[in-house]
Each structure stands twice: as structure tokens, then as C-alpha cells.
Nucleic acid binder design. Structure first.
Length: 731
DNA sequence: TTTTGATAACTTTTT
DNA sequence: GTTATCAAAA
């Protein structure tokens, strides 16, 4: 937009409406973030105290950006307003009431990896042999339950009422898992929201305190809120009723994570007299891009009709290209990117989106080969790397003696004679005395079945952790983290290993990067910068004005709440490679949307479920609408997955976008309403096999995954093929 | 106890 | 094709 401070009439209405609940239905690229920023700024300019405004965003990065932009419009205001993700907001509130919640002052926030270990332990403890490989499944079931505000007890009741044995098993695992979690004085992601709701429900005084406090409430990406977040929003808004939610039902892509589109669809009945503002003027994309995306999304049923329009010039048409395989797809993408560079695009103007992280590899290779600067966002999360987690675990274990989860992680890293046998002996002792692992370690002399070496190792570790805790008192986060790496011998240990193993050398680099990240955190403070007197522009955080210097605890929390999307840096001069999910909320002049194949995008698991297919379609819509000027859709005829070659038909979304004619068979449309994603076959149909040539289907047997066809090939051979694996395509 | 090698599981998306 | 996990050897 020409003038960043001008607003169109609908935007202005959304910014200035002061009559209570407000729903802003904001299509892709219609200036949704602008509206929120301007609304917050104008509230502040009208005299609202910034610290009585709460704005909830989807990622920490978005929160940062919003703070910065509000500050530019209402100097000082952005720094004081509460701008957080739901999880960061919950963590902040829970910390100030840790005591009454029976939580340690420095409770740990556990991530998915920690959850998985804990669930695996719980499963083992319950002797559920058959379930031992399903830890991830249980983690997600438990997480979903928490999103829906079902604690372990409620879940057990619910499972019993359903008379569902598998749910009852989940309930048992949930219960043991939760006990372990509490014993470690920790919360997982779901707990942050669940405990906040419990706090509000259980303590009227605290609830009213916050209801009174937040005079104005804004929630971004409301279509992707889960039940817990919905309840939090509703609770906080019930006093002043100044709630503004912004979102787009067509961009709801997180139902698998517990989000309910109905939260936004039912806003008007939830808040009678709610004002609804629709933003339909798109400032981002060319008409060609917009039309293709609209054609796709219109195939979803039961959506709120809305039509985006733009006054932007036509622009080049959306391109579609089919390639032989995923390597060709990547090479073509790199070639096209190089061409755009020649045309004057900068690498940071371009993005490659894919459905699954596994697809990133071929693009990395192709871009490296073509010497185009690029960056994969989020495939292996930085804070989930082993060495980084180990370093953080040391800090957590030192700070929180109850944190058995972190302690067990680093018990023998680097090796100190506390191997598997010793660990089991210590854990057995801890269990017997119903104490934390740390206490067993402290009383290693009383623990049976320990070798002298193990006893010595235990004593050293206890000493080390105590020493670290004492040192943390006087150190900033960066020095504290450095102390961890030095004093634990972790650094020296890796250095030794790195001599013979380049992978270990890479680990050292990651730890160096961790130290950089802590330093950066320390400098920017991670917390709100002090209010600046006049200029809204970049200001040096005034250290003296802060209530307390940043400490390692704060860094640990920020690291735990870090999201993948937060790793994206718009200023980096490189092509961005990311999943479509991560692309939500971003925009790029040129976008390559790749892997548009049946079975991959939409992904094959949507076979049976029309709702999931609609979510895939929304995901595709999100991907397409990120593009401002150029949009290229790519798909590969064959693709190697798991080392096995699959041949895929072009995605139905390409047909739906009106970009290539439907195939003669009309196969894609016929499947559009949930038939198997695999090729639809019938007897008599002509097919092609890369090895055996063309032939005719003479018989069909089995069904679903086991669907087999007998093909009489023109060569004379007759073969029975499992449709799932056979690289057959219609001839 | 630690390192090494084999095996099985994994891939949909993540706050 | 890769990575995490588990058993046997040093």
C-alpha cells in the first residue's frame, strides 16, 4: 500500500468501532495485521492505558512485530501493552501465581520431546507392551484432551462413560504421565492453558483481577484457537466486553492441533450484538493469483461466502509445471528462482512451500548446487537439537531440583559412570522413597546396586549442579550458559569427539549458536523494553529502568515457547524454504508451491474424511495467497518416499484453480468428494506401467490398501499388482 | 560401562 | 533413505 498509515473505510471502521464485541472477517492480504496495530495504537492515543490492553498473536515473532509497529504509531505504547501468544501469556500469569497453584516458583515448561520421553516411561511403567511404540500417538491424544480442557480425571470419566477400552488405556497413561509431570514441577504446552483456566475457575479474586485489568482484548488468527484459548478469551472479555477478534475461516489449518473453526463461525451467537466487519479488499496479490486461489477455496462447502477483490494490475498468469520426479521439481524451482534473480527479484523475495518437511531435502540440494542463497525454516528445530536440549537441561536441573526429567537427560552426558544400570538403581530408589531423582543422587551412598565409580559420579554431579545454581545468582543468561558448557565438561567432551567425527563438530557449532542466541536475548532483553520518552523508532533498551536484569530462567522460558515460525527472518538475504503451515501470515513477491500431487497435497490420509480434505484445501489456499506477483505450482509425476517410488496424479487443487483442463477420465473431480486418493480404477480401463508398458485392467480384487488389479499388458504378460505400490497411471 | 552395529520406525502439518 | 532405539562386543 502506498501510504502505510492510510486505511480503507472497512479497516477504519474495524479500528474505530467502540461498541463492544467486534468480529473482523479478514480475507487473505486484506490488511488484518494493520487493523490490529492501528486499533491498539488508536486506543492508546485515545487515552487507554497500554498496560490494560492485551493483544494475542499466533507466534512470538508476530508479537514482536506488532509491538514494534504499535510503538511507531503510539510511541511508548507498544512496549507497555501486553502482546503475547496465548502460551506466553499463560506462562506469565501462571508464574505470578505459581505459589497458589502449588507450582515451584521456577517451573519448567516441557516440550514435545520431553513429553514423549515421559509418556514412554509411563507406558513402560504400566506394562503396556503393545503400546510401547506409540508414545507419539499418546502425546497427541493427551495434548488434544488438554486443549479441550479435559484433565486426567475428566478424561478417565469420559473414557468410562464411552465404555471404550482404548480410551481407558489412554486415561491410565494420562494419569501416570500427569503425576510424573507434577512431580517434576513442570507444565507441558497444554497445561499452560489448562492451568490458567483452572486458576480462573478456582479463584474468583484472581479471575476478576484480570477481567478488570484488561480493558481491551484483541485476538489474531481467531479461526485457529482451540477450546482452552476460547474459554480464556471469553473469560477475560466478560467484564468489559471490549473484545476484537480477527481471522479468516478459510485459513483455518490447525484443527489437527485442537483448533475449532466454530469459535469464529459462532462468534456472533456467542456475543449477541457483536459487530461484524468484513475486509475484502486485497492489497497483496495480482488478480490472476487471487482468482486462482478463490476458485480453489470455493470448492469447500459450508463456508462463509466472501469475495476478495483488488485494484492491482493483472500481472503474469499463474504457472503450472509437471516434472518427472522430485529432483527435477527442485531443479526446475531453482532454475526459475535464478531467472527471477536475473529479473531483479532478491532472494528474500522468494519462497518455496511444501506440504511435508521431508520434501525440503531435494530443494536444499538443488539450491545449493545452483548457488542460490536459501534457508530452510523449521525442519529440525534449533531448540530440539540434542546438544542444545542437553545444555538447557543442565540449567533447568540446576535451577529446579524437582526436575527429574531434565536431570535424567544429562545424568550421564558427558559420561560419568552413571550408565543405564546406575540410572535404574537411582530411579528405583527415588520411587521407593517417593522422592525426586535429585534426592536419590544426593543420597547415592544409601542407594543399592551402585558401583563405586557410579557413587563418585553421583557426588560430582550433585556438587556441579549446586555450584551452577549458586553461580547463576550472579550471572546474566549468557555467562550462565557459558558456565554450563564449561563447568559440566560438555564443551571439552564434544571437543574430544569432534576430532574424529564431523557431526560432533556441527554440534559444537550449534552450541556456539546457542550462546549467540542467549547473548542476543540478553541484549534485547526478551522482555518489554523500557518505555521511550519520545521517538517511536528503534531505541536502546534502558537497562536501568528494568525491574530486574534478565536471568537465565527468562531465557529458558523464552526458548521453551519459541516456535518454528519464529525462526523466519524476513531480513535475511535468502530464499525461504518452509512448510505451508509455517507460511501462514507471511507474504512474498514470488512463491513456488510444490508437490501438488494427489496423495501428498492433499495428503493421502484425507481419503476417508471430507473435513480433512477441506482443511487441505484451505492449506492450499493459504499457500497460494502468500504470493504477491508470481505464483508457480509444481508437481512431480513420480516421487520417492521411504526409498520407494510412487507415481502421483496432479493435485485436484490444480484443476480446481482452473489452471489445467480436467483429465478426460474426470478422475480428479470424481474423487473430489472423498474417494481414495490412489488412482480410481475399473475393469476395462487402459493403464500405463513404466516397466511393463500399456495394458488393460481385467480384474479387480481386495479393497482399500489391499486393492489389487490384474493387468493384461500389451506385451502379452499378465500381472497382478498391488495398486498402492504399483506405479500405474491412466493411459 | 561404553561403544558399536543392527533394526525398526518414521513422515502431515506444531503452539 | 534417515534417524532413534536396542542388543551385543570391547
Amino acid at each position: 500500500m502506498a501510504d502505510p498509515d492510510s486505511l480503507n473505510p472497512e479497516q477504519r471502521e474495524a479500528v474505530s468501532y467502540r461498541g463492544g464485541p467486534l468480529l473482523v472477517l479478514a480475507g487473505a492480504g486484506t490488511g488484518k495485521t494493520r487493523v490490529i496495530v492501528h486499533r491498539v495504537a488508536s486506543l492508546i492515543r485515545e487515552g487507554a492505558a497500554p498496560e490494560r490492553i492485551l493483544a494475542v498473536t499466533f507466534t512470538n515473532k508476530a508479537a514482536e512485530e506488532m509491538r514494534r509497529r504499535v510503538d511507531a504509531l503510539a510511541p511508548g505504547g507498544g512496549a507497555l501493552a501486553w502482546v503475547y501468544t496465548f502460551h506466553a501469556f499463560a506462562a506469565r500469569i501462571l508464574r505470578s501465581h505459581a505459589q497458589r497453584l502449588g507450582l515451584p516458583r521456577r517451573f519448567t515448561i516441557y516440550d514435545q520431546d520431553d513429553q514423549k520421553r515421559l509418556v514412554a516411561e509411563s507406558i513402560k511403567e504400566l506394562g503396556l507392551e503393545k503400546e510401547k511404540n506409540k508414545a507419539s500417538l499418546y502425546v497427541s491424544l493427551i495434548s488434544r484432551a488438554k486443549d479441550d480442557l479435559l484433565d486426567a480425571q475428566s478424561y478417565a470419566i469420559y473414557a468410562m462413560a464411552q465404555n471404550d477400552p482404548s480410551r481407558e488405556t489412554v486415561a491410565r497413561v494420562y494419569e501416570v504421565y500427569q503425576k510424573k509431570l507434577s512431580a517434576s514441577g513442570g507444565l507441558d504446552f497444554g497445561d499452560l492453558l489448562l492451568k490458567l483456566v483452572e486458576l480462573f475457575r478456582g479463584d474468583a479474586a484472581i479471575r476478576e483481577l484480570y477481567q478488570e485489568r484488561f480493558l481491551h482484548l484483541l485476538v489474531d488468527e481467531y479461526q485457529d484457537t482451540n477450546h482452552a484459548q476460547y474459554i480464556i478469551t471469553k473469560t477475560l472479555a466478560s467484564k468489559h466486553r471490549n473484545l476484537c477478534v480477527v481471522g479468516d475461516p478459510d485459513q483455518s489449518i490447525y484443527s489437527w492441533r485442537g483448533a475449532h473453526v466454530r469459535n469464529i463461525l459462532e462468534f456472533e451467537s456467542d456475543f449477541p450484538n457483536a459487530k461484524v466487519v468484513r475486509l475484502e479488499r486485497n492489497y497483496r496479490s495480482t488478480p490472476n493469483i487471487l482468482q486462482a486461489a478463490s476458485l480453489v477455496i470455493e470448492h469447500n462447502r459450508g463456508r462463509l461466502k466472501k469475495s476478495l477483490w483488488t485494484e492491482r494490475p493483472e500481472g503474469p498468469s499463474v504457472e503450472v509445471e509437471e516434472l518427472a520426479d522430485e529432483r527435477e521439481e527442485a531443479r526446475s524451482t531453482a532454475r526459475r528462482a535464478a531467472r527471477l534473480l536475473d529479473e531483479g527479484f532478491s532472494p528474500k523475495d522468494m519462497a518455496v512451500f511444501y506440504r511435508t518437511n521431508a520434501q525440503s531435502r531435494s530443494f536444499e540440494e538443488a539450491f545449493t548446487l545452483a548457488q542460490i542463497p536459501h534457508r530452510v525454516v523449521g525442519s529440525v528445530r534449533f531448540y530440539e537439537r540434542k546438544e542444545v536440549k542437553d545444555a538447557l537441561a543442565y540449567a533447568r536441573a540446576a535451577l529446579n531440583p524437582a526436575d527429574s526429567i531434565s536431570l535424567s537427560r544429562i545424568l550421564n552426558v558427558p559420561p560419568r559412570g552413571l550408565g543405564k544400570a546406575s540410572q535404574e538403581a537411582l530411579e528405583a530408589h527415588a520411587k521407593k522413597t517417593s522422592a525426586a531423582l535429585r534426592e536419590a543422587l544426593e543420597h547415592a551412598d544409601k542407594v543399592e546396586n551402585l558401583t563405586p565409580a557410579a557413587r563418585q559420579g553421583a557426588a560430582e554431579l550433585v556438587l556441579l549442579l549446586e555450584q551452577l545454581r549458586r553461580e547463576f545468582e550472579a550471572l546474566g543468561p549468557a555467562d550462565a550458559m557459558e558456565a554450563v558448557l564449561q563447568k559440566t565438561g560438555y564443551w571439552a567432551w564434544l571437543e574430544g569427539l569432534a576430532e574424529s567425527d564431523p557431526e560432533e563438530a556441527a554440534r559444537m557449532e550449534n552450541l556456539q549458536e546457542l550462546l549467540n542466541a542467549v547473548r542476543e536475548f540478553e541484549e534485547t532483553c526478551g522482555e518489554k523494553p523500557a518505555p521511550s520518552p519520545a521517538s517511536g523508532e528503534q531505541q536502546a533498551p534502558a537497562r536501568a529502568a528494568l525491574p530486574e536484569a534478565p536471568r537465565i530462567e527468562r531465557f529458558l522460558e523464552s526458548a521453551a515457547l519459541q516456535t518454528q515460525a519464529d525462526a523466519y527472518d524476513a531480513n535475511r538475504p535468502s530464499v525461504t524454504l518452509m512448510t505451508v503451515h509455517l507460511a501462514k501470515g507471511l507474504e512474498f513477491p514470488a512463491v513456488f508451491l510444490t508437490g501438488l500431487e494427489e496423495g501428498l497435497f492433499p495428503i493421502s490420509s484425507v481419503n476417508t474424511n471430507p473435513e480433512e480434505l477441506e482443511e487441505e484445501r484451505r492449506l492450499c489456499y493459504v499457500g497460494m495467497t502468500r504470493a504477491k506477483e508470481r505464483l508457480t505450482l509444481l508437481h512431480a509425476a513420480t516421487r520417492r518416499v521411504f526409498g520407494r517410488v510412487y507415481s502421483n496424479l496432479p493435485s485436484r487443487f490444480i484443476f480446481e484453480a482452473g489452471l489445467i483442463g480436467r483429465p478426460a477420465e474426470d478422475a480428479a473431480m470424481a474423487r473430489a468428494h472423498c474417494a481414495p486418493a490412489a488412482m480410481r480404477v475399473k475393469a476395462g480401463m487402459r493403464v500405463r506401467h513404466p516397466e511393463f508398458g500399456c495394458g488393460e485392467i481385467v480384474e479387480k480384487s481386495g479393497s482399500g490398501e489391499m486393492l489389487k488389479v490384474t493387468v493384461a499388458f500389451d506385451s502379452g504378460a499378465t500381472k497382478k499388482l498391488l495398486l498402492r505400490y504399483a506405479p500405474l497411471s491412466p493411459a
